[in-house]
Design a protein around this nucleic acid. Structure first.
Length: 550
RNA sequence: AGGGGUGUCGCCAAGCGGUAAGGCAUCAGACUUUGACUCUGACAUUCGUAGGUUCAAAUCCUGCCGCCCCUGCCA
């Protein structure tokens, strides 16, 4: 009897701890069973975190098993992307398995049920089956084929496999109870005839098992101890157990259901996401606006942040909707520790520092990331003419404005304190440029460094300025889910807005793609790709309250 | 309507008969060469609701109410 001291943090782990302590199991075996009919999204990350979390926490085993029992919807592209996304999130599966590898076993299980008088071939059409299923109030009507002999059923089922019948002309049904209040138990279809090329078994089979029949068998074959799925399968559990019992599997897997992840204003249905891709509203499943794992990867979300989010949301059975701010918090928390800082000016305002000569320059070392003790530094050069963010100067400052004002002082990040001398207005009375002077010895360690200023602003020397492109994506958030039309209209209006003409430090242009930066006082960005010699940056997430006093 | 679930702070979520953890969000203050970060403080006399049992209930019982899922040859 094995005992564990591990403290459970949710109801599923509770069950597992009980099963370990009671000696029911020595080793826990879970599985992540995606159907390869689309890309993984953030909702799957939760399921991944639960199943692989159990593996890691309890020294268990977790399989990646493709639930590929419906050839009409499944594709190799999806199995590849799923693998890639799981790896990226950092999960390591013990075996890669496919439901389709069990088709023969499943067939034999069906034969066993027939022999036990627990399954029969039904000649009804799908309409007839539907019609005779009854309703929530009325029991169903038993199929007139329900009492065929075992021999006849065996022969018919074999013929189904041989391809002697047309698609949809017959099905194999479990013989359970047409009067059950649980619709799933009213003689459910467990095999159908379907001529469709399977991405792995090709045209070997013309009959395919249904989920309710296949899934428990898959679990049982693999000796899964805890088969974790979402709430909507609760009603299926009696059928799940019925299959495991009647196909005489031992040990028996246990199905546990939890509430799937919903994020406020975020579309998570695969059907819907697929439509966005198919209809060309986004560039693909991995478009940075998509709530898919690959979309988030392209957007620049760190995988650790996604996993942290999955930890923090918890696991329970109550339907809920998490606010996106929690995900954003996890991303910021991660990026604050890991992202290098860079100064960038989105809306440049020219400042001439009159006491710096035309050919004079000062070099400063700035720590790449002050949150990181081992951070490297990079050099910035201060010259006579610099750009500052136009919002960092206010002719008429609003209350509590801390930055540069007429006659005021502010610190240039990493360099000197400057003092406002003169404002130059254009003919319309708008601020055209500023004249300032720097305070000697006010750099770090200097005699005048202790002069109190209320703010530190970012700057870029004009001579060193280069263009970068900032892409501020509208992610797939909607105020209300109002159907495809409305939603895609919004997408077209708001997505891929390009903020042009940002000036950046030289160091921003060194290094590799996918590096993440915090642009001072604005947001975290990921360097994405170079187009026509100009780096594009994708906004990952904004800083908190970054522009509150604009 | 029948069945299966579920209701604890704006959003998640612990709690499992002994007198409401924690996180996000929010607000206030401190600190700061990023108004970021960090730090400090505030934030449910009350657990959908009405009764009952008990010395004691979010936790047990009963009745109501709300929300979610189920009548695919999808998963």
């Amino acid at each position: 009897m094995s005992k564990t001291d591990i403290i459970p943090t949710n109801f599923i782990e509770n069950i597992i701890v009980d099963d370990l302590n009671s000696g029911k199991h020595d080793k826990i075996l879970t599985r992540f069973p995606p159907e390869p009919n689309g890309y993984l999204h953030i909702g799957h990350a939760k399921s991944l975190a639960i199943n692989f979390g159990i593996k890691n926490k309890f020294g268990g085993t977790c399989y990646l098993r493709y639930d590929d029992t419906n050839p009409e919807k499944e594709e190799q592209e999806y199995v590849d992307s799923i693998k890639e996304d799981i790896k990226w999130l950092g999960h390591v599966w013990d075996k890669e398995l496919y439901a389709s590898d069990y088709f023969e076993t499943m067939y034999q299980c069906a034969v066993l049920l027939i022999k036990k008088g627990l399954a029969f071939v039904c000649d009804y059409s799908d309409e007839e089956i539907s019609k005779t299923r009854g309703s929530f109030n009325e029991p169903g009507v038993e199929s007139k084929y329900r009492n065929r002999s075992v021999e006849e059923n065996l022969k018919l089922f074999e013929n189904m496999r041989k391809g002697l019948y047309e698609d949809g002309s017959r099905v194999l049904r479990a013989k359970i109870d047409m009067a059950s209040p649980n619709m799933n138990m009213r003689d459910p279809v467990i095999y159908r005839i379907l001529r469709s090329t399977h991405h792995r078994t090709k045209d070997k089979w013309v009959i395919y098992p249904m989920y309710d029949f296949a899934h428990p068998i898959e679990d049982a074959i693999e000796h899964i101890t805890h088969s974790i799925c979402t709430l909507e399968f609760e009603d299926h559990r009696p059928l799940y157990d019925w299959v495991v019992d009647n196909c005489e599997f031992d040990p028996k897997p246990r199905q546990i259901e939890f509430a799937r992840l919903n994020i406020k204003n975020t579309i998570m249905s695969k059907r819907f996401l697929k439509k966005l891709v198919d209809d060309g509203f986004v560039e693909g499943w991995d478009d940075p606006r998509m709530p898919t794992i690959s979309g988030m990867r392209n957007r620049g979300y760190p995988p650790e942040a996604i996993n942290e989010f999955c930890e923090r949301i918890g696991v329970a059975k109550a339907n809920s909707e998490v606010e996106p701010s929690l995900l954003e918090f996890c991303i910021r928390e991660n990026l604050n520790r890991t992202a290098d800082r860079a100064m960038v000016v989105e809306s440049p305002l020219l400042v001439t520092i009159e006491n710096i000569g035309e050919d004079e320059s000062f070099e400063f070392d700035i720590v790449d990331n002050p949150q990181d003790e081992n951070s490297k530094t990079h050099k910035v050069v201060l010259k006579r003419e610099i750009f500052i963010e136009s919002s960092d100067f206010a002719l008429v400052p609003p209350p509590k404005y801390h930055r540069l004002v007429e006659g005021g002082k502010t610190r240039l990040k990493g360099a000197y304190i400057i003092e406002h001398v003169k404002t130059i207005l254009d003919c319309d009375g708008n601020v055209e440029s500023l004249v300032c002077r720097y305070i000697p010895d006010s750099a770090s360690g200097g005699e005048n460094a202790r002069i109190k200023v209320k703010a530190t602003i970012q700057w870029v020397s004009k001579a060193d300025a280069v263009d970068v492109e900032l892409h501020n994506f509208e992610s797939l958030l909607t105020d209300e889910v109002e159907g495809v039309k409305n939603f895609t209209d919004r997408l077209n209006q708001n997505s891929r807005q390009i903020i042009k003409g940002a000036k950046g430090e030289p160091f921003v242009l060194e290094g590799e793609e996918n590096k993440r930066y915090q642009f001072m006082r604005s947001a975290y960005y990921k360097r994405a790709k170079k187009v026509d010699g100009v780096w594009q940056f994708y906004r990952i997430v904004s800083l908190k309250e970054s522009y509150s006093l604009m």
